[in-house]
Amino acid sequence: MKIKDVVSIINGRVICGEDMTHLEVQKGFASDLMSDVLTLNSDDVLLITGLANLQAIRTAEMSDISCIVFARNKKVRKEMIDLAKEINIILIECSDSVFKTAGKLYKAGIEPIF
């Protein structure tokens, strides 16, 4: 699925990386725990999280995750946007809970990693 379709399904707001939303994601993972995200070993993963801090962006960088959805209305701060732009990561804000966001995307065909 293209990331721009993800955005419309979850009613998201693209905060940065708009020019990369034609890229594809196949699988999704939802966690507030970066320790868990770091154990994944999978490509083209979309991360859904409620943890809005620099570590979420750094963790995505190290795990080759190119798109993060911040659920339950968590706001992305300027320093996070600066870092995400530097390393080409798409940031999306969304008002729904992690559960609802993941549910919508699962229903639309985004696969779980496990």
Partner: peptide, 15 residues
């Protein structure tokens, strides 16, 4: 609060 502290790190480094 930073998103760490699950006790997974060292095992993950080894893996």
């Amino acid at each position: 609060e930073m998103g760490f502290g699950a006790g997974m790190g060292l095992a993950n480094i080894k893996n």
